[in-house]
């Protein structure tokens, strides 16, 4: 029997033909892609800033961050507004561009298998687990590893 309290909610989204999942407590909301203001001299994956109801958020491209190629924005493109812990006290909010946002699923730890080694990602092991639903693979992503601010800041410095 599965313990109800062990179920955790995840939001799934797509990049290309692959499916990913993020723990729902990191995601504040999902909004449509509107006007982006580009910041000059910033690394390629930092798309610029957006106005989220009066709040200015940096927008990052999840595809580029994971080492995939750039894709054209479509009507299905979504921005996931994500909270990232910088330090114990400080949380920054960013927007992460994904190709498509899908659904909320509930998973228990037993559904999640250990992730194999992914060698083509330029960020170290952002995938903490894999769900195999009869051949339909969903990768669980650790938001702090993909968008760790130390990483962002560091990369930013190298680029300049």
């Amino acid at each position: 029997m599965q313990n109800e309290s062990q179920l955790k909610s995840y939001i799934t989204f797509g990049l290309g033909d692959e499916k990913f999942a993020l723990a729902v407590d990191h995601v504040q909301e999902i909004v449509e892609l509107d006007k982006v203001t580009k910041i000059p001299n910033a690394p390629h994956y930092m798309l610029g800033i957006i106005n989220l109801r009066g709040k200015v958020l940096p927008l990052l491209d999840t595809r580029l961050k994971l080492g995939l190629s750039e894709a054209l924005a479509t009507k299905k493109s979504r921005i996931m507004v994500i909270d990232i812990m910088v330090t114990d006290e400080k949380v920054i909010q960013i927007g992460a561009l994904v190709d498509v946002a899908k659904e909320v699923i509930e998973l228990s730890p037993s559904d999640i298998q250990e992730a194999p080694e992914f060698e083509n990602y330029n960020t170290k092991t952002p995938i903490t687990g894999v769900v195999n639903n009869k051949g339909d693979i969903t990768m669980i992503m650790d938001v702090n590893k993909v968008f760790s601010s130390a990483d962002i800041l560091q990369l930013n410095q190298i680029m300049n």
Binding site: K35, T37, I39, P40, N41, A42, M46, I49, I50, N51, G54, V56, P58, L60, V86, I92, I94, S149, I152, L153, N156, Q157, M159, N160
Partner: peptide, 21 residues
């Protein structure tokens, strides 16, 4: 914010009447 620390020649942003930045 912190993400754009390196772009310090931009002091910040401002929201225009039509909602764009």
């Amino acid at each position: 914010g912190d993400v754009y620390q390196q772009q310090d020649f931009i002091a910040g942003s401002t929201i225009l009447g039509n909602g764009s930045l």
